[in-house]
Design a binder for these strands. Structure first.
Lengths: 105, 105
DNA sequence: ATGTTACTTAACCGTATGGTTAACTATCAA
DNA sequence: TTGATAGTTAACCATACGGTTAAGTAACAT
């Protein structure tokens, strides 16, 4: 999870992920819109791969990258579960306060 | 968003967030279960505050921290929207492949 | 065979991160 | 007033991050 969130903490990598949502892409295609050197793009892709967000496959002289949704789903689940718990607690608090007010009559 | 994901990329900070889900806590309460020095805890809290995930309020000689759900909701939304787009694309691909197969008859 | 394209690796640089210790301030209790 | 508690600040340290340039390898086109 550490690596997932860390990978998504960089705007360039989030743009890469957004691009990969719309289908496979080579490393240079991912680098394209970002005005960056190949080594920089490689490092970003490497971090996405380390996080399990992306898989790589050598095809001819290109390396095509594909999105792996697992880690993002896990991150989403963590956020949703925690937000749900937080909302549940607030609801319980509201209910408690309403009851207190009611008793105060 | 950078700061939100970066803040959540550290396990200690995620534990702090999980703790804050269950209600307010002082900095030393947040540091408690993690066997860490106060300065370390302070830096983690500072990063959570910078990311907008937590607000601080001085109360007596303690500083109580409260969770602010906005940034987490935004992060959750980004993940969900992108995962939905990815699933939609896969569904469309399946449909296309099914149609191809049908024509092949 | 030569050149071009796509990727890789190595070395380096400045800055940020996560942690420490030590010294300081502020609040509350005895 | 003396002392303990909670927090803060400053200085330092090792490692990781995001980027660069330079020099390499692998695959394809002519």
């Amino acid at each position: 999870m550490d690596r997932t969130f860390a990978a998504l903490a960089d705007p360039t990598r989030r743009r890469m992920v957004e691009r990969l949502m719309r289908g496979e892409a080579s490393i240079s295609e991912l680098a394209g819109p970002h005005e960056m050197s190949m080594p920089a793009a490689m490092k970003h892709v490497a971090r996405l791969v380390e996080a399990g967000l992306v898989s790589r496959e050598k095809r001819g002289r290109s390396v095509i990258c594909r999105l792996e949704p697992g880690p993002m789903e896990a991150a989403s689940r963590w956020l949703d579960e925690n937000l749900a718990a937080w909302n549940a607690r607030l609801d319980a608090l509201d209910l408690y306060l309403a009851k207190q007010k009611d008793q105060g009559k």
